[in-house]
Design a protein around this nucleic acid. Structure first.
Lengths: 225, 225
DNA sequence: CGGGGCGTTGAAAAGCGTCAACCCTTGTGG
DNA sequence: CCACAAGGGTTGACGCTTTTCAACGCCCCG
């Protein structure tokens, strides 16, 4: 729902004749690996590649003069990144965990897309979907309270991880804070608050179990007013 | 800089051989008009068209359950909208002023793009640029203070209106507030604050003159910390 | 002349950030 | 095997920015 959810094959079912499987791109891709914390590319670097996450988690971030950081999105298995960028990347990309990615040369993708109109559509859909996610995230950042933000985030992560009740959160509280426009302390307090209400259970360091999805959805959709 | 600035011809100079003028699309477009406040399309409507603003100003907005509103972007002359949207529009679009737009059928654009690879690149650039703007706006919403937000907004508007010192603001304070994630009162107070510092002058209801651009840029880039 | 929308200003309240202390886990080296 | 340090997470107290509620002024238009 929230945030830049770009799956590798967003529509197993709508793959009509006019489309062309994105997986076909893999032929022109090569695998790269990154250790946790490593930078894949910096904001401002010349944008020569697209990437797809094969395993692990990646974040894109921007820095402000005052040292403040914002994480635009987290990229999980199957998500594409580097789609923004005219000629240079707009955000840095860093591995949240050890990760494997598939790297595609932009020029090769361009040539391939020219040959396969269906692929063009898929690529545009991919960017459009990411834009749509960015708009949802803007709404979250501009108008939601801390509880609403965290509830939205958890539901989105649950959705992206298959829709089950168990959520894995490979990123730190600080990462979550920088993604939701909050401080780590507020993120932590808000986790506790939702936990005390009985809506979630914290499992170890990076696990969350949803115990009352409906209640969480109410929180996410802004009960204020 | 900030926010979804999509010009009709973003690169008069880089129009190399591999590109194809976006203006060529106008052949397949038809003109529509909208009165101030009128809705062009609703969030969730089936997305059948792209639009380009010919005259006037348009806003895209999303609503939250609590009645809270967020304006994703303002579209000025030459800007394209409707680029997000898989099959349905993600945001509603409303005329801020009386406006004329050019409406392009998405399917016709698709066919035309298939015939002209250069046009494909331009279209992808357009969406990528909007995505890049959205990321800048997320940074603003997540991490900037009221003064930083308004200064960033004014500078971006100045840039989009030719880079001169006079800015026209056709939208209301409430619109600006909903775009910057603030209340109208805070927007108003912040205008006053910047005005008292001598960085801008308010001209009538919808005009602003920049009197000290460097100072405004310092404010925008987060002097905090 | 009156009403309504928009903008500004003030005072009080709330939400969140900041500073600080503390806990827990992990990994390292004696 | 244990001690210790470092990083991440939680919690508390306090303060600041922004919101909220309210009143008022302005301008346009009926």
């Amino acid at each position: 729902m929230l945030a830049t959810v770009i799956r590798s094959e967003p529509d197993r079912f709508s793959a009509a004749a006019h489309t062309y499987p994105l997986a076909a791109l893999d032929r022109i891709g090569s695998v790269v690996t990154a250790r946790s914390g490593e930078t894949l590319f910096h904001a401002g670097d010349e944008a020569r590649h697209y990437f797809k996450v094969k395993t692990g988690t990646v974040r894109t971030c921007k820095l402000l003069a005052g040292g403040k950081r914002h994480i635009g999105a987290f990229f999980l298995e199957g998500d594409y990144l580097g789609l923004d960028a005219d000629d240079t990347y707009g955000c840095s990309a860093e591995a949240v965990t050890d990760a494997e990615l598939i790297k595609y040369s932009r020029s090769a993708v361009g040539r391939m897309v020219d040959q396969h109109p269906g692929l063009r559509r898929r690529l545009i859909d991919l960017v459009s979907a990411e834009l749509s996610g960015a708009q949802t995230q803007m709404m979250l950042l501009g108008r939601k309270t801390a509880v609403e933000r965290l509830a939205s985030f958890l539901l989105a992560m649950a959705e992206r991880q298959g829709g089950g009740d168990h959520i894995s959160l490979p990123m730190t509280r600080t990462d979550i804070a920088d993604h939701l426009g909050l401080s780590t302390e507020t993120v932590s307090r808000t986790f506790t608050e939702i936990k005390i209400k009985g809506f979630i259970r914290l499992v170890g360091l990076d696990g969350v179990t949803v115990r009352n999805r409906a209640a969480l959805e109410d929180l996410a959709d802004a009960a204020s007013a």
